[in-house]
């Protein structure tokens, strides 16, 4: 009788491992395929049956990214636009979040509603007026337009999430600082801000991710000068001939910064992604 009793948990454990590994393979395989395709030569990539590991890795695709697709320009464009958008959203948003969290204000519900509804707005709705305004103002295909658009898209998110992070800090800590002799600003700078840093970092990474990955607005509001990485990557797909290796290399180059940054910030990620509603 004792045999099945000891065997069952072992079998169940093995089953659980098998399932977990299977699931991981499903989610990891396309990532592996993208990475390996980016290292394959034109010849290796069109082999059938496909080659998995037995190919000569080459950086030819990455080199071509820079020679054929102007990836360096796009990378700089992406970096500048995303940096501007992220700073705009973080600075304005954190200020507003602090006001919402710590001050008794009139019209707060209206504000909260506006913040949430902008978050729900499909970008396709605002793309036309932005397109028209950009042409009138002469800022079509410049950094400013996309930076403003991404800043706006990130702003409600920052306000909402940072409000939750600020509320997590007990008011009494700030009050103690004020009693200890700090002004409001000193209190924020010396006491609140250091405690807020992890939350700020997590929020920033998420805003960064949204702006960095954005394609719809970027493809419609730029034509030459301000093209971002997703736009040039999509350009690698031409209806007739598709440069698979090149496109994969662009994919890896785009995704790598986000993957690295977010995995570093895992601890506060859930809190941020659920608008503060779920603790990680």
């Amino acid at each position: 009788m004792s045999k099945p009793k000891t065997l069952r948990p072992v079998l169940q454990g093995l089953g659980a491992y098998a399932l977990a590994i299977l699931a991981t393979l499903f989610f990891a395989f396309p990532v592996f395929w993208m990475a390996s395709s980016s290292l394959k030569s034109e010849l290796d990539i069109s082999q059938y049956p496909p080659v998995f590991t037995s190919f000569e890795p080459s950086l030819v695709n990455y080199a071509e990214l820079f020679t054929q697709l102007d990836a360096l320009d796009a990378f700089i464009n992406s970096a500048v636009i995303v940096a501007m958008a992220t700073s705009l959203a973080m600075i304005c948003g954190t200020m507003a979040a602090y006001a919402l969290a710590r001050f008794d204000m009139k019209g707060k519900e209206v504000m909260a509603f506006e913040v949430l509804s902008i978050r729900m707005l499909p970008p396709i709705v605002s793309v036309i007026p932005m397109f028209i305004i950009a042409r009138t103002l002469g800022i079509f295909d410049t950094y400013w337009l996309l930076a403003a658009a991404y800043g706006l898209a990130g702003l409600p998110f920052v306000v909402w999430v940072m409000r939750v992070f600020i509320q997590d800090i007990p008011q009494s800590i700030e009050e103690a600082a004020m009693i200890d002799g700090c002004s409001r600003f000193e209190t924020f700078w010396r006491v609140t801000l250091p405690l807020l840093l992890p939350g700020l970092a997590a929020t920033m990474v998420i805003v960064f991710m949204f702006s960095w990955n954005e394609f719809l607005l970027a493809s419609m509001l730029t034509s030459q000068e301000a093209k971002t990485l997703p736009v040039i990557a999509a350009n690698a797909i031409k209806p007739k001939s598709i440069a698979w290796g090149l496109a994969s290399a662009a994919g890896v180059m785009m995704s790598l910064p986000v993957v690295v940054l977010v995995l570093l910030m895992q601890r506060y990620l859930v809190r941020g992604l659920t608008l503060g509603a779920v603790k990680g």
Binding site: T24, F27, S37, N213
Partner: peptide, 24 residues
């Protein structure tokens, strides 16, 4: 570790996701 690996797809740029799946 497996859990962390599973999180990666949501971080991949959607355009890159499209390209990769189109290849596959």
């Amino acid at each position: 570790i497996l859990r962390t690996v599973i999180l990666i797809p949501m971080l991949i740029t959607p355009v890159a996701v499209g390209i990769t799946w189109r290849i596959m």
